[in-house]
């Protein structure tokens, strides 16, 4: 049950809340889209991508990790916050190697769709071209770390849903990398399968199905005609829109 007394406002509009809501929970239930990549309705907040930054009480906070407190006034769709989100998105782009035109996930990628949604025209920052290993050892799936944004969703899905602990984050700082759990360090030698939940949560093209790529023609891909703020947190292979996102 939502309770008006617990409500907050987002950009001046009243948003009802339930006890225990974070700002993003309340916003999405009310149909107010707040950009996000590492948050997922099924897996909850992670707080790492920082795309859902909003301003509340004069402070910058992540909507996915900040409890909605009664009467809280949140700024989200302002020029200042949109620019902040744009810069964070550009930081994600230069942090990896993202070549959209050639990418199998183009048109279905949440990072790309978020960038379009924020009006991104260029990288703004100089690309860092990091060296990140591609793991093509698995029969069904490709792990392309160049595209990984370290949202931890595959880690969480494999731990919590599949119970396989296939993935882990290793390294530190700019050297942080996704690591499969096997003696060889290769995806082939893990228990990973294309049927795993972990194979279906990647918001970008870091975990790709090896077959059937480029099957959907341009114009019929997930985000070709409808922007991410209207589709919400959904993957191309999701049967229905994921969770509570609008």
């Amino acid at each position: 049950m939502t309770d008006q007394a617990l409500g907050i406002t987002i950009d001046g509009a009243a948003v009802p809340c339930q006890a225990g809501d974070t700002v993003i929970d309340a916003a999405h239930r009310a149909g107010v889209y707040i950009p996000h990549l590492c948050f997922h309705p099924e897996f909850g907040p992670h707080g790492s991508c920082r795309l859902c930054m909003v301003k509340a009480g004069g402070r910058y906070v992540a909507a996915c990790t900040t409890p909605a407190t009664p009467g809280m006034s949140v700024e989200s769709d302002t020029a200042e916050i949109k620019e902040l989100r744009l810069r964070i998105t550009q930081m994600l782009f230069v942090d990896g190697n993202h070549f959209c035109p050639a990418c199998e996930q183009s048109g279905q990628c949440q990072l790309q769709a978020t960038a379009y949604g924020l009006g991104m025209q260029d990288l703004h920052f100089s690309p860092s071209y990091p060296k990140k290993a591609v793991d093509a050892s698995h029969d069904e799936m490709l792990l392309d770390r160049d595209r990984c944004i370290q949202c931890n969703l595959c880690v969480r899905a494999s731990d919590r849903v599949d119970g396989k602990h296939v993935f882990s984050l290793g390294g530190r700082g700019i050297e942080t990398r996704l690591m499969p759990n096997s003696a060889s360090g290769l995806l082939r030698d893990t228990e990973f399968s294309a049927e795993d939940r972990a194979a279906h949560v990647c918001p970008v093209g870091a975990l790709l199905f090896k077959h059937d790529n480029y099957a959907r023609p341009i114009g019929r891909r997930l985000y070709d005609r409808t922007s991410i703020d209207r589709i919400g947190n959904r993957r191309a292979d999701d049967a229905a829109p994921g969770g509570s996102a609008p």
Binding site: R50, M91, L92, D95, S126, I149, Q150, R172, I174, T176
Partner: peptide
Amino acid sequence: FHHESCGFCTPCRSGSNIMLNA
């Protein structure tokens, strides 16, 4: 800071790298 960033969040991980490179 670049060396000591834990790498968890985008602004610190990527931001410190952008600053250091520049």
